[in-house]
Amino acid sequence: MNDKIYKYCLITAVGLILPVGVGIFLTLLWDAMPAFEKFGVIEFITSCDGNSVAEGEKYGALPYIVGTLATSFLALIISVPFSLAAALFSGEYYRGKRFAGIIDSAVAMLAGIPSIIYGLWGFAVLNPILVSMKLSETGYGILSASLLLAIMIIPYSASLTKEFIMMVPSELKEGAYSLGATRSDVIAKIVLPKCMPGIISTFILALGRALGETMAVTMVIGNTNFLPKSITDTGNTMASIIANRFGEADGLQMASLIAIALLLFVITFIVNLTGKFIVKKLKA
């Protein structure tokens, strides 16, 4: 009897989750249709917003797709060495020691900061630093957003990577040490290969977070709607253009924003699937 109740509870819960997910996708698709019908899906993805009266009302997602992918991948690349170092420090080198505890709390603190604070810090501190280093004219732009995103995703990848590193059985490490391997050899040739699937899935999860992060990015990316040519250019991500415009948008502009939301949804989904596929390949 208990088993039955348990089972029905589970079925009800799952039965609710699935339609919600599918429902969000379908309603987004429905509301985005006017934009896709007007501009065509391919044209919408590969063009920019119109900037002359002659063009009439025209929207395109390309600058925002580029902005999103550029900031997220850049953030990921910047974050990898730092997260790996933090994970190796607290999970291997100083495992169980006080210093590891300090690193862990620092990482946990970074994870706990609300994104509006990151955004404000980026605006008030990071941007002026970039200006003074002559990396950017105003501070605003892809570079600033990527650095901020990198700091924001480091806690996630560092703490998960650490878990994977700590899961490597000590018999394997002792086996390698007993053959005369040095610590760096053991880490590079035994520990990291052993947890590579886990680390990759961790970084893909982090990439997923970076793709969708909105507030902090909106505050430092510069919010321009032309196609960024370099990392010091200003731009917009898919999330930040939505945050910027949804308040006053209606009609075709609203449909275009929803179309962008739908594309972001699809990109995040593809990234997660790719991650799963890579992990599966590596585990085999």
Binding site: P169, E171, L172, G175, A176, S178, L179, I190
Partner: peptide, 13 residues
């Protein structure tokens, strides 16, 4: 001075 362990531990990678 080589060592063989209680549980076989070939490197899985």
């Amino acid at each position: 001075i080589g060592m063989v362990f209680q549980r076989p531990n070939p490197f899985p990678n």
